[in-house]
């Protein structure tokens, strides 16, 4: 347990120094969290370029707002919220979200043997989702926000959030099916 205490103390020290706008501490914080926040950005953004931009903007905001961080709650959680909100702002500005009030009742489960897909491919499927579907899917499924919270964050109705989530899963299911069909097609046949 001792190393944890040391780490916690060092993080407090880094935060305190960052609050004084010290570049060295900011560098340490960036090095410590850049990978986590970049992967989070990758899930919320359309592609790597957008994710890089989102990461940079998030860190700028983190260093600017770090004086307001009072030490309540997880610091990493606080940084993640900033990163998520940056991504939401990015796609909210760019495109009007489509509204859909009727959730589909189609099955969104998949055969277990079809779940063996590389991580990069799965991430690509998420990135290819329409902006609002991707945001709803990430917020609800991957980051554990409720539909009410999602609706407030995206300024949509709760039913739209549920519908978008369901639609996102259907699209992902279709992509996985297509992926396996493609793999089967490219597989060399040794039988006949």
């Amino acid at each position: 347990m001792k190393p944890l205490a040391v780490n916690s103390h060092s993080l407090e020290h880094i935060i305190s120094e960052c609050q004084k706008n010290k570049r060295k501490a900011q560098n340490e914080l960036f090095t410590k969290y850049k990978d986590t926040l970049y992967f989070l950005s990758l899930k919320y953004c359309r592609n790597e370029a957008d994710a890089e931009d989102n990461l940079q903007e998030s860190f700028m905001t983190i260093f600017e707002k770090i004086k307001t961080y009072k030490g309540k709650g997880s610091f990493e959680g606080w940084m993640k919220r900033i990163t998520i909100y940056k991504a939401i702002d990015r796609y909210k500005k760019q495109k009007e979200f489509p509204t859909e009030e009727f959730p589909s009742l189609e099955d969104t489960s998949i055969e277990k043997e079809l779940t063996k897909i590389p991580l990069g491919t799965l991430l690509g499927f998420v990135q290819e989702l329409p902006d609002q579907y991707r945001l709803v899917f990430n917020l609800f499924q991957l980051d554990g926000y409720s539909h009410r919270e999602v609706s407030q964050m995206l300024s949509i109705s709760e039913s739209t959030s549920k519908s978008n989530y369901h639609r996102a899963k259907l699209i992902l299911k279709q992509k996985i099916t297509d992926y396996h069909l493609e793999v089967q097609k490219n597989k060399p046949s040794y039988g006949s």
């Binding site: 990978d35 055969e111 799965l122 998420v126 499924q141």
Partner: peptide, 25 residues
């Protein structure tokens, strides 16, 4: 023999990690 597609992505993507290529200190 079936798994919810949401759960599949949640499990897989939680393990992920990546380093930024162009964003440097």
């Amino acid at each position: 023999r079936k798994e919810d597609i949401g759960k599949l992505f949640e499990e897989k993507l939680q393990q992920g990690n990546a380093s930024p290529q162009t964003t440097s200190w």
